[in-house]
Design a protein around this nucleic acid. Sequence first.
DNA 1: ACTATTTCGTCATGGCCGTTTACAAATTAG
DNA 2: CTAATTTGTAAACGGCCATGACGAAATAGT
Lengths: 402, 402
Amino acid sequence: MTAPLHEARPSGSGRALPDTQQGMRRRNLARVMHAVSAEGSLSRAAVASRIGLTRAAVSTLVDELIRWGLLEELGPERPGRVGRPGSALAVSGRGPAGIGAEIGVDHLAVCAVDLRGTVRARAVRRGGNRDRAPEAVAAELGQLARRVVAEAQREELWPAGLAVAVPGLVARDGRTVVRAPNLDWHDTDIGALLPGEWPLTVDNEANYGALAELWLGEDTPHDFLHVSAEIGIGAAVVVDGGLLRGTRGFAGELGHIPVRPDGPPCPCGGRGCLEQYAGEEAVLRAAGLEPREDRVGLLAGRAEDGDERVRAALRDAGAALGIALTGAVNLLDPETVVLGGALASLSPWLLPSLEAELTGRTAGPACPVAVSRLGPEGPLLGAAHSVVRSVLDDPAVVTERS
Amino acid sequence: MTAPLHEARPSGSGRALPDTQQGMRRRNLARVMHAVSAEGSLSRAAVASRIGLTRAAVSTLVDELIRWGLLEELGPERPGRVGRPGSALAVSGRGPAGIGAEIGVDHLAVCAVDLRGTVRARAVRRGGNRDRAPEAVAAELGQLARRVVAEAQREELWPAGLAVAVPGLVARDGRTVVRAPNLDWHDTDIGALLPGEWPLTVDNEANYGALAELWLGEDTPHDFLHVSAEIGIGAAVVVDGGLLRGTRGFAGELGHIPVRPDGPPCPCGGRGCLEQYAGEEAVLRAAGLEPREDRVGLLAGRAEDGDERVRAALRDAGAALGIALTGAVNLLDPETVVLGGALASLSPWLLPSLEAELTGRTAGPACPVAVSRLGPEGPLLGAAHSVVRSVLDDPAVVTERS
DNA sequence: ACTATTTCGTCATGGCCGTTTACAAATTAG
DNA sequence: CTAATTTGTAAACGGCCATGACGAAATAGT
């Protein structure tokens, strides 16, 4: 007989429901929603066997979810097997929607995603936000959000919450931007500046990017490290299907891992941080290029054209990334490392040196490195889906909100 | 209104009970045990208000736990407040016990801990295990364990499980020692060689040390990094009160974080790994000492005596540790770093340079570094307590086992 | 000393919820 | 066309926690 190992014990996505009969009911409602959502379409009997309840119990749960408008009956399944065919259930395409928003350095974006995961409305505004006052940015984002919500409402959707991705460190309260160097924001309670009509969450864009990868990626494992870069280098650590946030919410600060302890000084106070080698500024400088609008596109274009100086800069950046990731992989033992954001676009020139360092420094098989296929949409989609997940995680909330 | 952030979602310490009335009951039994265990002594009413159930419900739960011999009634509390005094409940000092064992490089140890957390029996055998066959070591450990169990049984305790700490990497199956360099074991199914009478778990000594710190330390937070060293340097990552294990169970390999990417080659394949600067062998070499029996005591003694070469070696090791920990802290944002095992004994000479690196490389307040007060007993106690916790986590198991 | 108040533990009742059992409906296999 | 299989529902059942009431045991106030 083998006893279980003690494991990390997260507190449940969403809040922890009390262990009373009502809480049990709510959790089982959630399990039904998750089961149907994961398969797209499922009969009551299939749900029952999947979540370990009886068909009778699932029937009453499904009845309730249909009454709330969260599930719909699609009609009888085409039978391939013996026996009476089941009646297909699917998550409703109307009702609650997740509103995702992104504050980027060069743009604002908002989208609405229904419970099925389909994007139903979106709006984008190009234009730099560097050094703009948070109030102005928030006001503009609020306008965009209201426009998207109005569009969604025309399709019988109502906003279940607003999730905002920002390029910076967010406190664990989910409202305060502690530091966003690229926007020059410090300790900004962005939550107070945004529309208050809907439940609000603010989080780091790297975290939302990782969640998008987790939920939308095809073969994304439950444990991985998601690395992205806009100007700084951020990472998100996903453990057992959930984000590792750290005590203050600052986990994943890959950019300031020491790569060469005696290297050039970094604004953070350290020396030889990863950002000094693989940060956007450092790479542009090494490549002999001036910062301008589309910096990533510029780098990719020049590298594509065979500019040897640019390629060398990216090669060096990849090597530095590889060294930092070796440390991270040793510490976390993730199933894969995923490169997202700008790193995904530049991966053809980063990967060789990155992987060389990583495999060269690892005994046994090295941790595989994958490139995100979600592209720059990741954080926005992750934000919107995080709201959708919160509804799937506790469907009963729709009875409390209108 | 603020919505919750998405968080790491561990699957519950112990197994996840199904969401049915029986599962609910079992979870509530566990919550009662944990409440009483945490306070030492508690009335039914106090338990009720603490875990959010009614007094009536708690009464029936307590009745059952008393019937099983897991709780006992201590009699009326001395009243300080108005109202009828409650009847004090305490965890039973008889019944199930956790058997912890440790395979060290230079010793074997076994102990029995009752549900209250008191060590009730122990046995130690000194003598090196380097390069001994796993079969011989396991046989000897089995004898020791049987002796301890016999002694415990004389005090009306019965073994609820055996947890074994080993100085090496353990696979997630909780039985196989993948690599234990100090013992020269490779892919050894130690579970098959140990007594099979009790539920068995095998884990890394660093992990058990961290759990001991978590459960027995006084102000230990829920999120911390526990660093220990015997010959290699291991760390355990505790997130939200649970261990982060990694995909293969290899998380926490601090020893092979690159400190100086162009440094001396390491057997792992890398260059400049932490172990090359702060590993026991490296430190002894830098200190100009020969490896012998009590290596840590030797170092501490010489440093105490003012041997400048030894002090310099420890200073350099501390600095290397500081660099590696800077990376780890940036990645994980723990509440504290705890130095355990040999590092605790050597901390007076390691800490200054370690903290200098750590604070010097951190913007804002640096992560505090604490020293474990559990000493070399940590892993053994952690192992035994892990079995105790498994009973507290699901008290109903006692009805299944005799 | 006596009463009012507070708190504790228990009991009876009730409601909620998943299970069990049974059955009709709808399909395939032979 | 019958037997076997599977689905969904309904009714009875049992487990579990909440509610409300009550006696017991302490304090506070007069």
